[in-house]
Lab assay of single mutants.
Amino acid sequence: MMITLRKLPLAVAVAAGVMSAQAMAVDFHGYARSGIGWTGSGGEQQCFQTTGAQSKYRLGNECETYAELKLGQEVWKEGDKSFYFDTNVAYSVAQQNDWEATDPAFREANVQGKNLIEWLPGSTIWAGKRFYQRHDVHMIDFYYWDISGPGAGLENIDVGFGKLSLAATRSSEAGGSSSFASNNIYDYTNETANDVFDVRLAQMEINPGGTLELGVDYGRANLRDNYRLVDGASKDGWLFTAEHTQSVLKGFNKFVVQYATDSMTSQGKGLSQGSGVAFDNEKFAYNINNNGHMLRILDHGAISMGDNWDMMYVGMYQDINWDNDNGTKWWTVGIRPMYKWTPIMSTVMEIGYDNVESQRTGDKNNQYKITLAQQWQAGDSIWSRPAIRVFATYAKWDEKWGYDYTGNADNNANFGKAVPADFNGGSFGRGDSDEWTFGAQMEIWW
């Protein structure tokens, strides 16, 4: 008995050590931004985005507190085989008060198993909700290839000249389909599951310092038995992507060409959309029709120009041509140079221009935006974070068209359509004006 009692403290210590080691193995990653800002004409900070554009130049032009908190852990490992559990909870508030209630979004919860298939060394099996191989332009917060959501897949299969990845994910639309009631009355209240099937071939070395990635995505509306879509709904579509990445000037340049059809055009990033119906009456549900095509040509990157200068840049042309004439032509160009006074202090400027032409009206909206920021960051790279910055932003815009969301679809035949700025004596778009804002912001990723 005495021997047992003497061994007990040692056993407890060993158990505590094991539990401590396991606790220390938890990975904590994430992203956050928050700050305070004012508008020159009075009131809180207002942000500037061109009507019809899918993004905006973000430096000194973000008006919310946003965070993603990721917890993950390698829960099992034997040799080169392992299982990893990953989670991500995100939230966004308007940064107007101390207490701002919000419903967090559970954006990731997945398990990734590496090297589980003997004859596919280096590959990963995964299932669950996941940010899946996302491609974006940081300076405009624009995701041009992103099929994230609940799904499953097999990735990084070594095929000799590259890595092959296969995945299936889902994005549902509210009110996407109906069941038959009586007297030809349909009640569009059932969600429609939109499935996306993704095939990618990446890391193909085609020139010194250059790699090529090719991808095909097929999206479709997956209806339940005895349900139907509204007439004209976009049932399926394709997205084709080619991306060349070149190492240059201690950074990279990415050149991207994408072509999409029908349900893959509205978001243009790989998620299927077009079966959703915002109104019970299918007579007024025309606005979900996105049959047509999209072409996107994009070049972006980040480079170092000597010891003291870094720069991000982007140039993009996007043409969404829809059968219902509600598409757009959008082109944007911008730069973000950074001058480093010390390894932790810099001055950053961002200059961006957007131009969006309405397919329906032929009119154009444009905006110039310039931001000057003094910044303190954890390192001497344009990617170094955390960063604390004080900024001043000036924007000038001239908008000739907007979307008509007055009333509702039952009493407005133009609901959701592009109209000229002065349509029917109204005021659509943001008109011709300018404004400036100033404030302070922190940004961090880890």
Rank of each mutant, 00 (worst) to 15 (best):
G42C: 09
D103N: 13
V333G: 05
N411K: 07
A373S: 10
T332I: 00
N324I: 04
V257G: 02
E44G: 09
G407S: 00
D158E: 15
G30D: 00
W76G: 10
P208R: 06
R224H: 03
D310G: 06
Q73L: 08
L249Q: 08
I320T: 05
Q273R: 12
M19K: 10
R360C: 00
M2K: 14
N61I: 13
G268C: 02
A395T: 02
A202E: 13
R336H: 00
I206N: 05
N424H: 03
T4I: 02
R134H: 03
N110K: 15
G251R: 14
S433N: 05
G17D: 02
G43R: 00
G232D: 05
T50N: 13
G52V: 11
N110I: 15
Y286H: 11
D195A: 05
D310E: 11
Y66H: 09
T241A: 09
D310Y: 02
K7E: 00
M442R: 14
D410E: 14
V196D: 10
T51S: 13
S92F: 07
D404V: 04
T332S: 12
D225Y: 10
N289D: 05
T39S: 03
L214V: 08
R6S: 08
T192P: 06
G362S: 01
T211A: 15
L249M: 06
V93F: 13
A242V: 02
E399V: 02
Q46L: 13
G426V: 13
S179A: 14
N324D: 04
V159A: 15
L295R: 07
G162C: 12
K417R: 07
W99C: 13
D422N: 14
D354A: 04
A23S: 04
N289S: 07
G268R: 03
G270R: 00
T65N: 13
P208L: 00
T102P: 15
W330G: 05
S275F: 05
S263T: 06
P420S: 08
G79V: 08
W436L: 14
D310V: 00
V230F: 07
M204L: 03
Q133H: 08
T4N: 10
T332A: 01
I388F: 14
Y403D: 11
Q367K: 10
T50S: 14
I344L: 12
N222T: 09
A15T: 01
L223S: 04
W38R: 04
N222D: 07
A278S: 14
E205K: 08
G426S: 01
L8P: 14
W126C: 12
G153V: 14
A233E: 14
D404G: 00
A25T: 01
G429S: 09
Q22R: 03
T4A: 14
G306R: 02
H29R: 10
D187E: 02
N253T: 11
G176C: 10
Q45E: 02
E443D: 06
D136Y: 07
R107L: 15
A418V: 12
V199A: 03
D410Y: 09
V277F: 02
N253D: 01
N194K: 10
N183S: 04
V277G: 14
N355D: 01
N291K: 10
A109V: 07
V356L: 12
T169N: 15
K329M: 00
W397C: 05
A11E: 12
